[in-house]
Structures are given as structure tokens and as C-alpha cells.
């Protein structure tokens, strides 16, 4: 299978966010400025077409809808991701996670602790198993996705 376009475009967007918005977020102190940026991150990602909004890609356990796509490059064994949600804040938080782990191999991923960034930025005090935010459900799906395709 050749890599679907959405993963290439998402990878470019995530790289841009990692290089531009993430350093900005690190500088900011007040919550409003941080959320202002967080809520616009979703716009940087390529739009999902309806084909990707299929129920099989839905992450269970979120109050908001969240779709997670996964692709592993057969040659490099890198894991690529694409994501969409109908809620802006969850989408922004997941983008910050994905910006750190996109295109990692399983070995590299095993050493990564992407959720620590959210604490550092004080965007999410704790990633609780609460249904309402769904972050944990998406994180778990990312981790399981890597593990099951090693």
C-alpha cells in the first residue's frame, strides 16, 4: 500500500506546528493566549474527507467525536498519524501529542513521553480517565496502534 496523501500532508503540518506554534506556546504565560493558539491548531491540518470520517476510525470513549488514522511505512517502519475531532480543544491537544511522535519507529516511540508536554504547558493538569475529554482514549489508541504493529 502506498502512503495515502493525508499522512504526508499531516506530517508536514505537524512539523510546522512543532517548529512554530510549540515554541510560542512555551513562551506564553496566561491561559487565554495559550488556548487561543491551541484552538487554531486544527486549522493547520489537512481537512478529512468524508471517507476518513468512517465509524471504524472513531475513538471510543470521547464525548466529542474523534477519528484517528494510522499508517506504518513498510520500509522505514515509521508510524504516521492523521487525526480529526469535532471539538477544537481536544483536537489541539492531540495535535501537540502527535507533533512529538509522528513518524517515529516503535523503538523511538517506546522512549517518548509525549503527554508530559501538556503538563509542562499547563494545558491539562492531569490526563484523567474521564469520558468527557477523551484525551486518554486517543492516547491509548495511539500507543496500542504502535504496539500492535511493531
Amino acid at each position: 500500500m502506498i502512503r495515502p496523501d493525508i499522512f504526508t500532508k499531516t506530517a508536514t503540518a505537524l512539523k510546522n506546528i512543532y517548529d512554530n506554534q510549540l515554541p510560542q506556546l512555551r513562551q506564553l504565560k496566561d491561559w487565554q493566549s495559550k488556548y487561543r493558539i491551541l484552538m487554531t491548531l486544527g486549522k493547520e491540518l489537512p481537512a478529512f474527507d468524508s471517507d476518513w470520517h468512517r465509524d471504524e476510525f472513531l475513538v471510543q470513549g470521547c464525548e466529542s467525536k474523534a477519528w484517528l488514522l494510522h499508517y506504518q511505512d513498510p520500509v522505514t517502519t515509521q508510524h504516521f498519524w492523521a487525526f480529526d475531532s469535532d471539538a477544537r480543544i481536544v483536537k489541539g491537544l492531540i495535535i501537540l501529542i502527535l507533533a512529538q511522535v509522528n513518524a517515529l519507529t516503535a523503538e523511538e516511540f517506546a522512549k517518548a513521553t509525549p503527554e508530559l508536554l501538556l503538563n509542562e504547558l499547563q494545558l491539562q493538569q492531569n490526563i484523567s480517565p474521564s469520558r468527557s475529554n477523551g484525551l486518554l482514549a486517543v492516547l491509548t489508541k495511539i500507543k496500542n496502534g504502535v504496539r500492535s504493529h511493531c
Binding site: Y35, E63, S64, A87, I89, V90, S132, N133
Partner: peptide, 10 residues
Amino acid sequence: NEHPADLATL
């Protein structure tokens, strides 16, 4: 046009 989860988080 906004998701209730976003409003509640803010």
C-alpha cells in the same frame, strides 16, 4: 457552531 466540550473546558 461550537462543541459543548470546548465551552466547558474554557
